[in-house]
Amino acid sequence: MNQPPQHFFDKPENTTKVLWIFHVLCVGLLVIDVFYHRHTMHAWEDLWGFYAFYGFVACVMLVLVAKQLRKLVMVGERYYSDG
């Protein structure tokens, strides 16, 4: 039998494993904020988990706004070449 070779992400459980490790790292990065002294330059930076929350919210906003932008600017693939 000539089975196509199995690759890492062909197994769904591998994807789940990677996501688990990733989520644990995220939690770790949030928790670590309590335990070290930060040299901040602006008051916002002193808020607990500022960078984490800002990054998350920024990206969700970015994608949701971009989706709305599609309604405004998306046209057919041959829009310019059809003249």
Binding site: L19, F22, L25, C26, L29, L30, E45, Y51, A52
Partner: peptide, 16 residues
């Protein structure tokens, strides 16, 4: 750490 937080949570947003 600030940069790692920013990037990991951006990635978290993507996976979510």
């Amino acid at each position: 750490i600030a940069q790692l937080q920013l990037l990991f949570f951006s990635a978290l947003a993507f996976t979510w």
